[in-house]
Write a protein that binds this DNA or RNA. Structure first.
Length: 790
DNA sequence: TATAACAGTATTTTT
DNA sequence: TACTGTTATA
């Protein structure tokens, strides 16, 4: 037997670890699977393991590739390793799958006929492209929408099935499949023509590249001797294949000549060591092609792999863990695992049923204020929801209640039209072949270049076998009117100038990204035109554009040698969770998916209702319900000290209000663990059943709750519902002129009459603290509160 | 070509 | 509700 343990990992890297954690840090071998329950200290194990490899000189930093789920997690891991080693580590790759692949692809781009500045299409870009194709093929009449086609193609790419492979797998008798195939072919052709990759391509094309160029793969295999992958349960087949390619043995014929690593007797380069960390119970991305088998079959895939189980939880109280264990225990077909802690029972889980989504939100706002008074910071609290649509009511109430918050994800900064416009300019400059981006900017700001003109340019380009962008440079030959010709020529010149200014061979050296952006904005007059309208929305847009300039400035500061494509890569790959700023003292709002990997002292899981959690759409997907349950489990296990489960009796979708039922998952949480501030179900119903809502504890695997004694039948918006004291609406009014003083009596549209206790802040941010006669103390933003002085 | 008005449809989750 | 796409009109 070889010595499978490290030559003395320094004690400060293993002290204080429990035995399995310690094993995970010290084990040496080709493959290790760390099954890490929620909160079991896996980040610690991973960072200590990497630091150990470097400290013992078993590996140079540059021989390490660590894959995380978000860029933020990557940055944190890098920093923690630096702290453990007492110095910053250079040359180590810590990044997401996508970032790592972009890096490789850009470096190797010339080998497969792509420019280094190739464009990365985000979901919206892909959709725009797909819309054109679907329209051209009239596919919609056959029931193939752009979204459906993209979904299908994404699935294929995740499975590493290219158009030819797909062609082989279908029998041709299914017209729908034949159509999808044609769409897939055209879609890839367009991407190729635009010199662009979509998100899925980043992974799959890297795999293809490695397979087509074994000598290139060998370079990376030689370099990365230790590969570590976090959140392994959420890897899809393409990502799995990528890992396999990287950790494969390199045959002697492909081993680079100048290799200084010790080779095996047959001249081959032994495989790199692989460490993966994951938890099947937290797999929530099956819809995106994540394949749980990657983790469940790891031991077959990598014979001799060591498996380490981390079950001790260092995050949550026992009550929270009991709830989590009970819920996830309802998923059959899983490896038994029970989280435990020595932290003590802790507070009970708080339950609350609102009359409406606004009412639910009001409870959260009140609770946030109360907990803040008890010493929790805003930044230690988070609100989770299943769908982004739920944010509306939450935001309305939080604003009105003066709760500082930040939406994580959702309609992101980079998805705003004006920001996309400017980014499209930069994309055009980096990759003139990207016609999608050129077309996006050609008439924005308005230049009187309409569809007819665009077609003319496009035709001219085709006839002369040049790109759309090149055709613009020959505007004079298009035979268009003088005004339009000048507009096109002018834009082409602006772009030429911008391209020239970042030419690395330029005598003064290339201009910084932020300077490029500033010059460009000057040239096109984008901001000025927005400001000129006097429309407050356009003012907000102008501010967003300026925000982008600050982002570029910050980028220049962080990466003094960074070039435009680096900036664009960063922009293309920002993840929702990357936005979280730990220092800012505000409550975080995010989806349950975004919450993965994070933790907060205080957590609110909202909308714990049938049709929402589990979501209605999951009902007819195989395994959908189990995945929803894992999502709920992920949410529960984010909480360190205090967990809230909230729901509403009725919820508005599409502007239509409909009654909702408590989630079946609520029944899975032992009654004794929940302190219901406002239980679901009617008072009468409550006396009948033990768990507080209609029906037995029997859980059906259908989307509907047992109808018999469910709320649906008994619920009427009448007298019975009077017990919902906070019947909150989203009402606001402009109250900026209202002067309030302590002791004033006021009347609020939702809360009734009350007495002002205190007025805090100044100007637009004045906040009144009011004791309402019926519903207790509330904080309100005076500017928009629907109150009047009595 | 640009804009306004209207009708129809869509919300699951995301790198 | 809110956004997108289509159509009518300036």
């Amino acid at each position: 037997m070889f010595n499978l343990f490290a030559p003395q990992v320094p004690s400060h890297l293993v002290d204080g670890l429990n035995p399995p954690q310690r094993e995970a840090v010290e084990y040496r071998g080709d493959a290790m699977l760390i099954i890490a329950g929620a909160g079991s200290g896996k980040t610690r194990v991973l960072t200590h393991r990497i630091a150990g490899l470097i400290a013992t000189r078993e590996a140079w930093p540059s021989q390490i590739l660590a894959i995380t789920f978000t860029n933020k997690a990557a940055a944190e891991m890098r920093e923690r390793i630096g702290q453990l080693l007492g110095e910053a580590v250079e040359g180590m790759w810590v990044s997401t799958f996508h970032s790592a692949c972009v890096r490789i692809l850009r470096r190797e781009a010339p080998r497969f006929g792509y420019p280094q500045g190739f464009t990365i299409y985000d979901a919206a870009d892909s959709k725009a492209l797909m819309k054109q194709i679907v329209k051209a093929l009239e596919a919609e009449s056959l029931g193939v929408t752009p979204a459906a086609a993209l979904n299908r193609i994404s699935g294929l790419k995740n499975e590493l099935i290219d158009p030819d492979g797909f062609a082989r797998s279908i029998d041709g008798s299914n017209p729908r499949d034949t159509l999808i195939l044609e769409i897939y072919r055209r879609y890839q052709r367009e991407l190729q023509r635009n010199k662009a990759f979509d998100f899925d391509d980043l992974i799959s094309e890297t795999v293809w590249m490695f397979r087509s160029f074994p000598e290139v793969a060998a370079l990376y295999r030689r370099r990365f001797r230790h590969v570590l992958v976090d959140e392994y349960q959420d890897t899809n087949h393409a990502q799995y294949a990528l890992i396999r390619e990287l950790t494969r043995r390199t045959e002697a014929e492909h081993v680079p000549a100048d290799t200084r690593i010790e080779l095996d007797p047959d001249g081959s380069l032994p495989p790199a060591s692989l460490t993966v960390v994951g938890d099947s119970d937290q797999s929530i991305y099956a819809f995106r092609g994540a394949d749980i088998r990657n983790i469940t079959e790891f031991e077959q895939d990598f014979p001799g792999a060591r498996v380490v189980l981390l079950e001790q939880n260092y995050r949550s109280t026992q009550n929270i863990l009991d709830a989590a264990n009970a819920v996830i225990g309802n998923n059959f077909d899983r490896r038994e695992k029970n989280l435990f802690t020595t932290a003590g029972a802790g507070a009970k889980i708080v339950g609350y049923t609102g009359f409406s989504a606004h009412d639910e939100a009001q409870f959260i706002a009140d609770q946030v204020h109360k907990l803040r008074d008890e010493g929790y910071r805003y930044g230690d609290m988070a609100v989770f929801y299943r769908t982004n649509a739920q944010t509306r009511a939450l935001e309305e109430i939080l604003i009105r209640s003066a709760v500082p918050y930040k939406l994580i994800g959702g309609t992101k900064f980079y998805e705003r039209a004006e920001v996309k416009d400017i980014v499209a300019y930069l994309l055009t400059i980096a990759n003139p072949a990207d016609e999608l981006s050129v077309r996006r900017i050609i008439n924005s700001p308005k230049r009187s270049i309409g569809p007819a003109t665009e077609t003319a340019i496009s035709n001219f380009a085709r006839e002369n076998d040049i790109t759309f962008r090149e055709a613009m440079g020959r505007a004079g030959e298009l035979g268009l009117g003088p005004k339009v010709t000048r507009a096109i020529a002018e834009l082409a010149e602006i772009l030429d100038r911008a391209e020239a200014s970042i030419d690395p061979n330029r005598s003064q050296g290339p201009v910084a990204v932020s300077q490029l952006l500033i010059n460009l904005l000057q040239d096109i007059g984008y901001v000025d035109k927005l400001r000129a309208t006097g429309n407050p929305q356009d003012e907000a847009r102008a501010e967003n554009v300026e925000e982008l300039v600050s982002v570029a400035k910050e980028f220049d500061k962080q990466h003094p040698d960074g070039i435009l494509v680096d900036f664009l890569t960063e922009v293309a790959l920002v993840a929702a969770a990357d936005e979280i700023d730990d220092e800012s003292g505000v409550v975080s709002l995010m989806t349950l998916h975004t919450a993965k990997g994070l933790e907060f002292d205080v957590v609110f899981i909202t909308g714990v209702e049938e049709q929402l959690l589990p979501h209605r759409m999951s009902a007819d997907e195989p395994g959908g319900l189990a995945e929803e349950r894992r999502l709920f489990y992920v949410g529960i296990t984010r909480a360190r000290k205090l967990l809230h489960l909230t729901l509403a009796m009725q919820r508005t979708t599409f502007g239509e209000s409909a009654p909702s039922l408590p989630s079946r998952f609520l029944q899975e949480v032992p009654d004794a663990l929940i302190d219901w501030r406002q239980p679901p179900g009617m008072p009468q119903t409550r006396q009948l059943g033990s768990s507080g809502f209609g029906g037995s504890a029997r859980t059906r695997e259908s989307a509907q709750m047992p109808a018999g004694r469910g709320l649906k039948g008994t619920f009427k918006p009448t007298r019975e519902n009077q017990r919902f004291t906070n019947r909150v609406t989203g009402a606001v009014r402009d109250n900026s002129a209202l002067e309030l003083a302590t002791g004033d009596r006021v009347k609020h549209t939702d809360f009734g009459e009350g007495t002002v206790r205190a007025v805090l802040g100044a100007g637009a941010k004045r906040i009144a603290e009011i004791d309402f006669d019926e519903v207790g103390r509330k904080k309100l933003l005076i500017k928009i509160a629907p109150i009047e002085k009595l």
